[in-house]
């Protein structure tokens, strides 16, 4: 995607999205989604000796899509998209694994138990986080977005402050509260 007219394509899509075109946003998410997936699939071969985290995925997607010298305003929008896309990819994959585990029949469940695979593993947790985050989005969009940017987008608190145009102190306070809220929602 980074060699060809795709670059301009993305810039154009971002511009359209900034002017309120929701369709452009969808197209952009689709792009990023495909790209992040490709990175993930190739990472074992191409990145020996390192496990990519969600942060790495997002940052790498950014560099591939925009190049390193993209304007900050573009980056900012991109971060939103990348964080959403990463979240979507990870949660979809977790849902898929859970579904195939449930549908896999008794034999597989036994095997899992035999091999010490906890029934309530990270996949379930990830799906619950996604659900809780969706609830938070309904009632408290800014704090939900902060969580998304930090955890799925890999942004630092300074970057979050810039992206949302608030002070760093606000980021710290909002994050603390949102994190506590999520935790208590997960434990409920």
């Amino acid at each position: 995607m980074n060699d060809g007219p795709g670059d301009h394509d993305v810039t154009r899509l971002i511009a359209a999205w900034r002017s309120g075109d929701e369709g452009a946003r969808e197209a952009l998410v689709e792009r990023v989604y495909a790209n992040v997936r490709a990175i993930a699939a190739q990472s074992l071969r191409q990145m020996p000796g390192a496990t990519l985290s969600a942060t790495d995925l997002a940052h790498e997607a950014l560099i591939r899509l925009l190049g390193t010298d993209a304007a900050w305003s573009d980056r900012r929008h991109f971060f939103h998209v990348a964080a959403q896309a990463t979240r979507q990819i990870l949660v979809d994959a977790a849902r898929q694994r859970l579904a195939s585990k449930r549908g896999g029949g008794a034999e597989k469940v036994e095997l899992d138990a035999a091999l010490g695979v906890a029934a309530n593993d990270g996949d379930t947790e990830l799906v619950r986080i996604d659900d809780a985050l969706r609830d938070l989005q309904q009632s408290d969009a800014r704090r939900a977005q902060m969580i998304e940017l930090v955890y799925f987008g890999g942004l630092s608190r300074i970057e979050v402050a810039q992206a949302l145009q608030v002070s760093e102190g606000t980021v710290d306070r909002d994050l603390r509260l949102a994190r506590a809220w999520l935790r208590s929602a997960l434990e409920a």
Binding site: A40, V91, G122, E125, L126, I147, L186
Partner: peptide, 21 residues
């Protein structure tokens, strides 16, 4: 919840990312 240790969010996300590979 604020006082509790660890970060289940980060753990679950890292877990998911690792399994994509």
């Amino acid at each position: 919840a604020d006082a509790a240790d660890g970060d289940p969010l980060a753990e679950a996300i890292a877990h998911g990312a690792a399994r994509l590979h």
